[in-house]
Deep mutational scan, measured.
Amino acid sequence: KELVLVLYDYQEKSPRELTVKKGDILTLLNSTNKDWWKIEVNGRQGFVPAAYLKKL
């Protein structure tokens, strides 16, 4: 499993997105899109802007 660090808080703006908090370490599911990465948070899957995340 690949992990990502959340660099900035992000509030979901659609049902396909997820809310994340700065400092969270989460599972990366897909990073093929350069702008939006798919991650998992508490069993939910969704997208967060790639600029808000850093691969560990």
Score class of each variant (00 low, 15 high):
Ile25Val: 14
Leu3Arg: 12
Asn42Trp: 06
Glu40Thr: 07
Gln45Phe: 10
Gln45Trp: 10
Thr19Leu: 04
Lys34Thr: 15
Ala51Met: 09
Leu7Tyr: 03
Phe47His: 06
Leu7Asp: 01
Asn30Gly: 08
Leu5Val: 12
Asp9Thr: 06
Val48Cys: 05
Phe47Glu: 05
Lys38Pro: 01
Val4Tyr: 05
Leu53His: 00
Leu53Gly: 01
Ile25Met: 09
Pro15Trp: 09
Lys38Gln: 12
Leu29Gln: 04
Ser31Val: 08
Glu2Pro: 12
Thr32Gln: 14
Leu7Lys: 06
Val20Cys: 05
Thr27Val: 14
Lys22Cys: 05
Leu26Thr: 07
Asn42Phe: 09
Lys13Ser: 14
Leu28Ala: 03
Thr19His: 07
Leu56Trp: 10
Tyr52Trp: 07
Gly23Arg: 02
Val4Phe: 03
Leu53Phe: 04
Leu7Gln: 04
Lys38Asp: 05
Arg44Thr: 10
Arg44Gln: 10
Lys22Ile: 05
Asn30Phe: 07
Arg16Ser: 11
Thr19Ser: 15
Thr27Lys: 09
Val41Pro: 00
Arg16Met: 14
Leu56Gly: 03
Val48Gln: 00
Leu29Glu: 03
Gly23Glu: 02
Asp24Val: 05
Gly43Trp: 05
Val20Asn: 00
Val20Phe: 03
Tyr10Ile: 01
Phe47Pro: 01
Gly43Pro: 02
Asn33Leu: 09
Lys13Ile: 10
Glu2Ile: 12
Leu53Thr: 01
Val20Pro: 00
Arg16Asn: 14
Ser14Leu: 07
Ser14Arg: 12
Tyr52Ile: 12
Lys13Leu: 12
Arg44Asn: 10
Leu18Glu: 03
Val4Cys: 07
Lys1Ala: 11
Leu26His: 15
Thr32Gly: 10
Asp9Ala: 06
Thr32Asn: 12
Glu40Phe: 05
Ile39Lys: 00
Phe47Ser: 04
Glu17His: 07
Gln11Ile: 11
Leu5Ile: 12
Gln45Met: 10
Val41Thr: 14
Ile25Gly: 01
Glu40Cys: 07
Asp24Met: 11
Leu56Ser: 03
Pro49Val: 02
Ala50Tyr: 02
Leu53Ser: 00
Tyr8Pro: 00
Tyr10Gln: 01
Val4Lys: 00
Gly43Gln: 07
Leu28Asp: 00
Trp36Leu: 04
Lys1Asn: 12
Gln11Leu: 08
Thr32Cys: 07
Leu29Lys: 05
Leu3Ser: 09
Leu7Asn: 02
Gly43Val: 03
Tyr10Met: 01
Lys34Ala: 13
Ala50Asp: 01
Val4Met: 02
Val41Asp: 14
Asn33Pro: 04
Glu2Ser: 14
Tyr8Met: 13
Val48Glu: 00
Leu53Met: 07
Ser31Met: 10
Thr27Ala: 09
Arg16Val: 13
Asp24Arg: 04
Lys38Tyr: 15
Lys34Glu: 13
Val48Thr: 02
Leu3Ile: 11
Leu56Cys: 07
Leu3Met: 11
Tyr52Glu: 01
Val20Gly: 00
Val4Thr: 02
Phe47Gln: 04
Val41Trp: 13
Lys55Phe: 08
Asn42Ser: 11
Tyr52Asn: 15
Trp36Lys: 03
Val4Glu: 00
Glu40Lys: 05
Tyr10Leu: 01
Leu29Pro: 00
Ser14Thr: 11
Arg16Cys: 09
Leu18Gln: 06
Glu2Met: 11
Trp37Val: 02
Val6Glu: 00
Val4Leu: 04
Arg16Ala: 15
